[in-house]
Design a protein around this nucleic acid. Structure first.
Lengths: 223, 223
DNA sequence: TCAAAAGTGTTCAGCGTACACCCATGT
DNA sequence: ACATGGGTGTACGCTGAACACTTTTGA
């Protein structure tokens, strides 16, 4: 069936976001194969005949980061004829949010802050721009930003994350009022003294509270 | 190059929206080929080796509707292994907004209102649900709803469109205040007397005004 | 005691929302 | 004259946004 139709190479490319020292970062690899050997690139790979596209994306992500079960969402399918120099390849881009502390250095891979991103192969820079726009939009209406933080974090860290994503500084009081009024955080009886003598309370995201909030018809909306 | 990797069938499916008599409608076809001959389905087709995915989508849309240059946007790529009963097919879904008056009846195709949509083949019902959510979201922040209306329309028609898309009734005064305050409509010196004796002013969407508004840093936001 | 980050309330303006009546015209 | 859809303004409450000082504690 369908024998009269063409088949195509289908690839997956992953935009991998992290957060470190107040900046959003991107994990890139140096290609060690042709074409464009030695150029910086997103992590990618081909979709096999016997794996779903989602599965291919998580496989590729795991190959690079060693991490499983992390936030991974489809971004967009890129299908122009000449987007890959070597052959006609349709690429389905995914973006992932990882806790940078869990990542173990891999040879050939490197984290780049946004203002340091080099020219990437093919249409990868375009993918990155789209992923960033998606991240900005999504973090406003869904609590996915937490994926980029350690499990326990301070409100200052959280604010710094939102400031980095949206590239604007926020008022501390308004930020706290806003996020706390959603009742999706649990304050722990633990303080982080790394950044101050006084110490800041640690919080964690409480998925049950979030689900309860959504159930009640309220919505996460960051402003 | 890439010879060691698998190729896959890649298809495109189109969710085609229209608006008629106060209701959002969907254009579906009765399949005249296996598998599932005779079942209702989205319009679809395979992506050829020598056409871009976007091009395939507009080709397929034109095959069914005869229409070119209409609003067509990628929705999502569906890549589960068993989504098509006959073979492993990755499908990239697109949604289109058409002015239903421009459409000429095709054999085998039929418009369905949302509460009349039959069970469709494969994962097409899921695609439709996603397309509807996208349409709801997009029409709030971008002036794409106009694609579903004739070039000239009354404010009552426009309100009826938004009510249909968002499945809620709106206050007439607030609606008009809101849409007119964006300054993206041009009022014509022409009235539509089809629905009232008094006649209602016709308007058209003014892309230049819209671009100017965006340029000024304001944003289309319907509430 | 001082430096550095943590934590905390109030005020105001603008906007979203609710709401009801007159107008124009064809039959 | 009357029925039908077209068109218009105001008042109020809520929420987003601006804004500064005290607390804690290690060095």
């Amino acid at each position: 069936m369908y024998k009269q139709f063409d088949k195509n190479y289908v690839a997956v490319d992953c935009i991998i976001f992290g957060f470190h020292e107040g900046r959003i970062k991107l994990l890139l690899i140096k290609r060690d194969f042709e074409p464009h050997r030695g150029a910086w690139s997103l992590m990618g790979g081909f979709v096999g005949r016997d794996e779903s596209v989602d599965k291919a994306a998580s496989r590729i992500l795991e190959e690079l980061t060693g991490l499983k079960d992390i936030f991974l969402e489809q971004l967009y399918a890129y299908g122009d004829l000449d987007r890959d120099a070597a052959a006609r390849v349709i690429s389905i881009a995914y973006y992932a949010l990882i806790n940078i502390d869990h990542y173990e250095e891999k040879p050939g891979a490197k984290w780049f802050a946004f203002d340091e991103i080099p020219t990437l192969v093919f249409d990868h820079n375009i993918m990155v721009q789209k992923a960033l726009r998606r991240l900005k939009r999504k973090t406003i209406i869904q609590p996915i930003g937490f994926e980029l933080l350690p499990e326990k974090f301070t409100l200052t860290q959280l604010q710094s994350l939102y400031e980095a994503i949206h590239q604007q500084s926020l008022d501390k009081r308004n930020f706290r009022k806003n996020i706390l009024s959603m009742h999706v955080l649990e304050r722990l009886n633990e303080k982080d003294k790394n950044n101050s003598k006084r110490g800041a309370f640690l919080y964690k995201f409480d998925k049950e509270k979030y689900d309860a909030m959504v159930e009640k018809g309220n919505s996460f909306e960051f402003k």
